[in-house]
Design a binder for these strands. Structure first.
Lengths: 223, 223
DNA sequence: CGAACCCTTGACCCTAATCAATGCTAGTGG
DNA sequence: CCACTAGCATTGATTAGGGTCAAGGGTTCG
């Protein structure tokens, strides 16, 4: 039952912009945008907030560069990570249907994001039917990602959650990669405490599947 | 932090078709469809499967009537419910980006569903830009629903999960409603065992917030 | 009337949360 | 350069929430 899903990404000719590579050109400027920072693009430092849960939702965002995390906080103040966002991902689509953002989005690494005011996006969708198709595709991909998260949070035990998450963030076997989040944040994403995350990581190390070096990790090819 | 989200539903003039009420007319026939069963519509009996996880994804579905459940099964055979579908909901959107369905969809009550072959949907999206906007809106709503599910599966303890789920399915306080699923299925949706679900329900009864009568339940207005 | 189911309840166990202490870096200012 | 601090990671002891296993009681339907 192991099935490879296609992601719908990188179907068009490469343009240097990961959103355009997915066919998304939600702004009139897109056609002439060469990927360098310019009007409408936003640079976020590490820890910078793209938007906050509950704020007026008037902008859709396209991630150009960096890693961000969608999180949502319960009334009791407990944070739950929704998913990680990377180049080409879309967020803030609540703006299409709701007046408020449902989650907060924080940059885990320095990031570059394209801001698309909702009015501009809707105008473009209304005139350029291909953009509608492209955005639907992108949203369908995001939904698949959310379903994956549900499969992690529902039936998966802690050890497996941690291994899955680390593998998703790591590079090829043997390659060192710096994690963009600490144990607590990893815990928020996986609905575990930082202590449990730490213990699971140690267990992977002891089992010889993983090496760590501060926030850098690498998986070892199984012998 | 209690915020009311609008659902994006029922924005257009009522037509008798919940999908069209959301602005979705993905087939050429839609304009003349009066909601009665006809070409393209599918009737499912209780327990009927709309599609299976892993099958070739070539159709998008619009729920017209009834309640269905998206579920996904792990390699070890454990089922995890994704979400409940009701009139106006869209499912099978993996067809837009992937060759295979990511989940199975089962009818919990007798249901009526509109089948939209992906080729037809794409042709329509490509020619009718307003349909792109409508489908994007619908997908954004579905994403919000999935995020809600993550908030249930992540930080919420069993008791609260069960109460939340039951309240979502129940009618107004004092009104009897027949649940479309049994304890085991409720457990699959909430990532709990049927025993735990049962215990939580009993606890609600003992607390006086709920009455049950076979599969019928009602919440009592708090005094 | 019997046979599937479904639901409930109890006893026990195990995973992960909680509470608490200790080390480890990395940055800051003297 | 060296304390000093603050955040982060690890580890241990204990607890509790929910899973598992098992039995019994209710419905519903042929």
């Amino acid at each position: 039952m192991t099935v490879e899903w296609t992601t719908g990404r990188a179907t068009a000719a490469p343009t240097g912009c990961p959103a355009r590579d997915r066919g998304l050109e939600l702004r009139n400027l897109c056609g002439s945008c060469d990927g360098r920072p310019r009007q409408g693009q936003l640079r976020l430092p590490r820890r910078g907030m793209l938007h906050l849960q509950g704020e007026t939702a008037d902008t859709v965002f396209l991630v150009i560069e960096g890693t961000l995390c969608e999180t949502r906080t319960t009334e009791e103040g407990r944070a739950q990570g929704m998913r990680l966002l990377g180049p080409g991902d879309v967020t803030g689509t609540e703006a299409l249907v709701s007046g408020r953002y449902q989650c907060s989005v924080e940059a885990l690494t320095p990031a570059r994001v394209c801001r698309v005011p909702i009015a501009e996006a809707e105008a473009r969708l209304a005139t350029t039917s291909l953009q509608g198709v492209a955005l639907c595709r992108a949203l369908a991909v995001e939904m698949m990602g959310l379903r994956e998260r549900i499969m992690v949070l529902g039936p998966m035990p802690a050890q497996e959650r941690v291994e899955t998450a680390l593998r998703a963030m790591a590079g090829d076997d043997g390659e060192w990669v710096r994690l963009p989040l600490n144990r607590r944040e990893l815990g928020e994403l996986l609905a575990l405490t930082q202590e449990t995350v730490s213990r699971c990581v140690q267990r992977l190390k002891r089992a010889g599947t993983l090496q760590t070096q501060g926030r850098r990790i690498r998986f070892l090819a199984r012998a």
